[in-house]
């Protein structure tokens, strides 16, 4: 960072040492460590594969059943992302609507909380009655479970505009719409993008739950039928695929958040 005066002699050229960046490597090392511990633990305790398979056995299962695993993984990713995208659009729209006025916020917020308190699993049977089993209830469950955090975050961002900022703009003759567009919407964006990480994770919960009880495809369904065949390594293989998909989508959302709202990470919202 500092510019060196060429006249001053440099003490000693730093020896090129290979120095791994432990902080960057840490997640990988810890993950590998976890698998190793798991492997050793299962081998020492001698647990049968039908209770807890070793990771090597799980990877074997992944290779062995790759074709169905791949097909079902894509199906789950598809229902999850579709439900999530509907949740983003609906959540943004409803969030903006709720945050629009203090009165709407006060009136709808309790309803939203009540709705959110219902376990979404309980809605799956109703969705099945309406839409039959398969992709549609899975998408809808993913949507229902993930849109709430988006709504709440967007609405909160809007409803907590500093009164002074509002005063400055109102004194200039700003209409409600002006204030919302110039301040409210940009202000709620960090909340919105922050909520996407939570929402995508929940969307996976929704789609897998629905697939487990009401579908002929998807990882949830695959794991349920593997379980009824006592194919425990395949169940774990499904879990592993879910973890991979979940981490990938989470990382994507975190990246999007950082790209879109870099300013919010460097400034406090209070300013």
């Amino acid at each position: 960072m500092t510019t060196l005066d060429p006249a001053t002699p440099i003490a000693a050229a730093p020896r090129p040492v290979f120095k791994p960046n432990w902080v960057r490597l840490a997640p990988w090392l810890y993950t590998i460590g976890l698998f190793v511990l798991w492997e050793i633990g299962v081998r020492i305790s001698g647990l049968p594969h039908t209770i807890l398979p070793t990771p090597t056995r799980v990877f074997e299962a992944i290779i062995q059943y790759w074709s169905p695993i791949w097909k079902n993984s894509v199906q789950t990713l598809y229902t999850t992302v579709l439900g999530f995208m509907i949740a983003v659009v609906a959540g943004l729209g409803i969030g903006l609507f709720i945050g629009w006025s203090k009165a709407i916020y006060a009136g709808l917020y309790p309803i939203m909380v009540g709705f959110n308190a219902i376990p979404k699993v309980a809605l799956v049977p109703i969705l099945v009655i309406w839409f039959g089993i398969g992709t549609v209830p899975a998408v809808l469950t993913a949507f229902l479970i993930s849109f709430f955090p988006i709504v709440v975050n967007v609405a909160t961002g809007l409803a907590t505009i500093e009164p002074e900022t509002e005063d400055v703009l109102r004194a200039l003759g700003a209409k409600k719409l002006d204030i919302m567009l110039k301040v409210g919407v940009p202000r709620s964006m960090p909340y919105f993008f922050g909520s996407l990480k939570v929402a995508i994770t929940l969307a996976f919960v929704g789609s897998v739950v629905s697939e487990t009880v009401a579908s002929n495809s998807g990882l949830g369904n695959m794991m349920a039928s593997a379980q009824s065949n006592f194919n425990v390594p395949l169940v774990f293989a499904g879990l592993l695929m879910l973890a991979v998909e979940g981490i990938a989508m989470y990382a994507l959302m975190a990246w999007v958040e950082k790209r879109m709202t870099g300013w919010a990470h460097r400034s406090t919202m209070a300013n």
Partner: peptide, 26 residues
């Protein structure tokens, strides 16, 4: 009128120049 409060209420997602131009958008 133009108003200024103790708390500067600058919008953090706009540059200083864009902040200053804000009243003109209104």
């Amino acid at each position: 009128v133009g108003m200024a409060f103790q708390n500067p209420t600058m919008l953090p997602w706009r540059t200083t120049l864009e902040n200053i131009l804000l009243p003109l958008e209104i």
